[in-house]
Design a protein around this nucleic acid. Structure first.
Lengths: 211, 211
DNA sequence: GACTGTGAAGCCATTCACAGCT
DNA sequence: AGCTGTGAATGGCTTCACAGTC
């Protein structure tokens, strides 16, 4: 149970399991089996058990898992036991939507500031979060101990903003701009290209007729 | 070149290659090698060639690939040669952001309608796209020959909206609500959970110190 | 000489199947 | 009896290495 290499797919599923456990916890379910989890989130029962086995033993043989307890452990594994301050670069539609997105808040992320170059937007509050000029980025990151930055600017500005985030010493970047950006290896970069997902959909619709 | 099983990872990368090729095409680059593509998008050269090999031979040995030509073929493979009419369920922040997202339009997707239950929003135009009441969903889908629906409603309403999309006979659904939803096997469903991506980031920040 | 296309090898993730608990 | 935890087997994706072509 040491820090072996954890497949990224496993981490992704843990995140999904956790949200699922929160759901059923709200409904008052106290115990659940790997088979039920698997069924509801769409994976195999062995997969669920293997994923958890990377991190320890959380179940009871013959019984299953305690919902609250398992969720607590997964949240801890994912590093979500403490709240993460996050900033968003770009106060356009996507940046605004992300700043109001409940799914972040529910999971321990707190958007502490938004940055934009548009004079007209600066100083205003979006959903209670102040919009600062891009020039203040490094200052706010340092002051609020921000480790994660979200890029929600147009593709053309993405690399420049990424450079500023790196200079401001964030540790991780979530990039929503549909552009390949470069950062040092020491920075965790994840790209969320929204149209990639639509394109996989169109590919599948056209291609796998016989499944 | 029959319809073998294509790895989803391959399709995802093709989408990325295509966007990358569009980028360098704009800069006037006419020829490119698998090594350069690989380097810039962050995969191995052999990977690039294998991905393309599933669909044919698009390069010239000793030379490389013609940028425009290769991009044309990938776009065709992804099913993007013709424009896809798409609808969005949910006129909240996320729905609005998605309706204005340039990344969709650039790739051949056309948002033709938005649906919401909020009386106040109905009839208005968001970025030139009319907002209809949810009740009109099936009608608009049929009339505009919509094959793809995007779910951008709160988690609590996601399953109900999914059911309506299925009833309206869309073929594919892109779900942005952070909730597990169920649809018949014949429907292509893809989930984009925005916080999953942040959570993989926090996991990596906490876990893989020694990489 | 340079770079693609591809069988073979290697590696990693998922599934199987059963021992181990409760 | 039921369900977890896990070594072994399987399957699939990625990398290697080189033959083929320009």
């Amino acid at each position: 149970m040491k820090a072996l290499k954890i497949p990224e797919a496993t981490v992704m599923r843990l995140s999904v399991y956790s949200r699922y456990l929160s759901q059923i916890d709200e409904r008052g379910v106290t115990t659940i089996s790997s088979a039920e989890i698997a069924d509801d989130v769409g994976v195999s029962p062995a997969q669920v058990r293997k994923d958890l086995a990377y991190f320890g033993e959380f179940g009871t043989r013959g019984v299953g898992y305690n919902v609250k307890d398992l969720n607590y452990h997964i949240i801890k594994i994912l590093g979500l036991s403490t709240s993460w301050p996050v900033i968003i670069a770009g106060a356009g539609n996507l940046g605004t939507a992300l700043s109001m997105y409940g799914g972040f808040r529910d999971r321990g992320f707190k958007i502490v500031a938004i940055f934009d170059n548009d004079e007209a937007k600066i100083g205003y509050k979006l959903n209670g979060i102040e919009v600062y000029p891009m020039g203040h980025l490094a200052e706010v990151v340092a002051q609020k101990k921000v480790k994660i930055g979200i890029i929600a600017v147009p593709a053309a500005a993405a690399q420049e903003v990424a450079d500023q985030l790196v200079a401001a010493k964030v540790k991780g970047i979530l990039n929503f701009a549909p552009r390949v950006i470069n950062v040092p290896d020491s920075i965790e970069l994840r790209n969320v290209d929204l149209s990639v997902n639509l394109e996989i959909l169109t590919f599948n619709l056209g291609y796998k007729r016989g499944r």
